[in-house]
C-alpha cells in the first residue's frame, strides 16, 4: 500500500518537519505561547487533581473572600473557590474551542476541497452558499444559532463551529487550488488514482499548513466567542464554570469584589494570547517567506 503513495520521498518530508520545528523553536514568542498552551491543556485534563476544590462546592460562610493562600483567586458569591473554577473553566473553554474548530475545519475543509478540486459548478454553488453565510456577522449568526438550539456546552460548540465553516472553506480552497496544479497530482491522476484518494491522500496533507495556522488562531477566536455568548446569556449556563459566564455573573459585583471578574478575564486573555502567539509562530515557521 504505502509504497504507491510515496511521490515525495519520506526522508524529505521528515526533514521538512524537523526544519519547521526548528524554526518554530527559534521563535521565542511562539515557544512561550506553546508552553502556556501546554500548561493550560494539562490543567484542563487533570483539573480534578490540579484544582484544590471542586468547582461547585459552595460555602455560604465564605462568600466574596479576597485572594489569599487558602483561595488563590478568592471566592465568588457562593463562596466557591475561583481558582478551581478557572481551572475547570479551562476544560470547558478548550473543549469548546477545539471541538468547534474541528467541526468547522472538517466541514469547511471538505467543502473547500470539493469546491477547489472539482471546480466549475460545484465550486460555484459552494462558494455562493458561503458568501451568504459570510454576509451575516459571525457573532450575530452564533447568537441566532444558539437561540434556536438552546443554551449548553454542546450547542455553543455547534453554533460556533458552524459560523467558522466559511473561513476554513476559503483557506482550504485556496490551498488546494495551488496544490492541484502541482506535477505529482497530475501524475497521480494519470496513474488513475481515484478522486477521493487524491484529495485525501495527496492534496489535503499538502495543504495542511495554512489549515493548521488558521485552526490555532481559530481556537482563540472560538474561546472569545464562547465567552461572549455566555456573557449575553446564550452560551453555557451555570453552574458550569465557563469563563464568560463567570465574568457575566461577577459583573454585578465588580465594584466591591474586583477579583470575581479579574481572574476569569485574565484566563481568557492569556489563553487567547497563547494560541495567537503559537499560531503566528507556526505561520512564520511554515512559510519562511512571510517571516517578519
Amino acid at each position: 500500500m504505502s509504497d504507491r503513495e510515496e511521490f515525495t520521498p519520506r526522508s524529505k518530508k521528515k526533514s521538512q518537519i524537523s526544519e519547521i520545528l526548528k524554526r518554530l523553536l527559534m521563535n521565542h514568542a511562539a515557544v512561550v505561547g506553546m508552553l502556556i498552551m501546554l500548561i493550560l491543556i494539562f490543567a484542563a485534563i487533570f483539573a480534578d487533581y490540579v484544582a484544590p476544590y471542586s468547582y461547585e462546592q459552595q460555602n455560604l460562610n465564605e462568600m466574596f473572600a479576597r485572594p489569599s493562600l487558602k483561595h488563590l483567586f478568592g471566592t465568588d458569591n457562593f463562596g466557591r473557590d475561583i481558582f478551581s473554577r478557572v481551572i475547570y473553566g479551562a476544560r470547558i473553554s478548550l473543549f469548546i474551542g477545539l471541538t468547534s474548530v474541528v467541526l468547522g475545519c472538517i466541514s469547511g475543509g471538505a467543502l473547500g476541497a470539493i469546491a477547489a478540486y472539482y471546480g466549475g459548478r460545484a465550486d460555484n454553488i459552494i462558494m455562493r452558499v458561503l458568501d451568504v453565510m459570510n454576509s451575516i456577522p459571525n457573532l450575530l449568526l452564533a447568537i441566532s444559532l444558539s437561540a434556536s438550539m438552546g443554551a449548553g456546552v454542546g450547542n455553543a460548540m455547534i453554533a460556533i463551529g458552524i459560523t467558522s465553516i466559511p473561513i476554513y472553506a476559503r483557506v482550504v480552497r485556496a490551498a488546494v487550488m495551488t496544490v492541484k496544479e502541482q506535477e505529482y497530482i497530475e501524475a497521480a491522476r494519470v496513474l488513475g488514482v481515484s478522486n477521493r484518494r487524491i484529495i485525501l491522500r495527496h492534496i489535503l496533507p499538502n495543504s495542511l499548513a495554512p489549515i493548521i495556522v488558521q485552526a490555532s488562531l481559530g481556537i482563540a477566536g472560538a474561546i472569545i466567542t464562547t465567552a461572549s455568548l455566555s456573557f449575553i446569556g446564550l452560551g453555557v449556563v451555570p453552574p458550569t464554570p465557563e469563563w464568560g459566564g463567570m465574568l457575566s455573573a461577577g459583573r454585578q459585583y465588580i465594584r466591591n469584589h474586583w477579583h470575581m471578574v479579574t481572574f476569569p478575564g485574565l484566563a481568557i486573555m492569556i489563553t487567547v494570547m497563547s494560541f495567537n502567539l503559537f499560531g503566528d509562530g507556526l505561520r512564520d515557521a511554515l512559510d519562511p517567506r512571510l517571516k517578519r
Binding site: Q58, L60, F78, G150, A151, G233, L234, V237, P238, A249
Partner: peptide, 27 residues
C-alpha cells in the same frame, strides 16, 4: 441572575437530600 443564584444554592442543598436537580435557564 437572582433566581439562578438562589437555585444554584438550592441545587447544592437538594443534592444533600439525594435529589439531583438540573437547572435549565431558558429565555
Amino acid at each position: 441572575s437572582e433566581t439562578l443564584n438562589m437555585l444554584e444554592i438550592a441545587q447544592a442543598m437538594w443534592k444533600e437530600a439525594g435529589i439531583n436537580v438540573k437547572i435549565s435557564s431558558l429565555d
